[in-house]
Design a protein around this nucleic acid. Structure first.
Lengths: 148, 148
DNA sequence: CGGAATCCCCTGTGATACTG
DNA sequence: CAGTATCACAGGGGATTCCG
């Protein structure tokens, strides 16, 4: 890594006015396990959100999902939909045909997540350029760092 | 894992009407790398959102952050704020005092994320009971599975 | 105080092969 | 088609130690 972060400031050290966390998702001051953790552990993985996005377009079969979600392996798709099913976000239906046919669709709860996902993608698309620029600037000022 | 998922349905297999993904974050049909990936890779990790939540309450020093975010290690806090700094979501300021003093605060871009985070925590708090119930039900119907 | 450097484990994920 | 079963591996992340 670069020879240690060394960009200092000449300004005097301020006394941080311990501002209150007006966004505190918990009830009390010491964030013990903020409910947010639940969501993150659930949709914060590599594929869940993409599955939800795809299912937001309507029911999909296993292969359809796999084809739609570029790069996901069979194994991960299985694990992802299973977890979503377990959490009640996705409904899995098996039709006793031959060969087997299974479809997945969002439950009521799952659908309520699509708004958030939409907001996330919107934010992403809006700020992507700014972030890319910030990144380039950082990488320019900090040659040979290994962040990410 | 349990002897294979075997909950079938008696209903006839429907012909999925390939509904359009009206939530498609990409421009075209085949989701190649949906912009959503960018956000997820950025705030979808274990700690970033918690740091953002804390900084939403105002500037914080390194130790303050670590104390506020229960369970985070020194190493991960460092890595997390570095990545956020690199992406231009957090501003890091070093005061040449002795011992060193550093504070972190959200940038304009970073602040714009607090709305989303708030929405996420709200959703989490609202649906937590339902999800917990779904989970229990699943675990009851599928004894000895190893999902998650 | 605010890190950086190491060591190490464990989990998530991919690749491949097999099955009802 | 829709999985399951294994193997194999990179990297995320924790604990500890050292430094300016």
């Amino acid at each position: 890594m670069s020879p240690t972060h060394t960009e200092v400031t000449t300004a005097p050290a301020p006394t941080l006015a311990t501002a209150p966390a007006d966004l505190d998702p918990c009830g009390h001051e010491d964030h013990p396990d903020c409910g947010i953790r639940d969501v993150l552990d659930r949709i914060g993985d590599k594929w869940s959100v993409l599955v939800i996005v795809e299912l937001a377009g309507g029911p999909r079969r296993f292969r359809e999902l796999q084809r739609a979600i570029h790069g996901i392996s069979q194994r991960m798709l299985t694990l992802t939909v299973r977890r979503l099913e377990r959490d009640g976000l996705v409904l899995r239906t098996v039709y006793p045909t031959v060969p087997a046919q299974v479809d997945y669709r969002l439950t009521e709860t799952g659908s309520s997540l699509t708004h958030l996902v939409k907001a996330l993608t919107d934010w992403s698309l809006t700020h992507r350029p700014v972030i890319a620029e910030a990144r380039d600037a950082y990488d320019r000022d900090h040659p040979d760092h290994d962040i990410r």
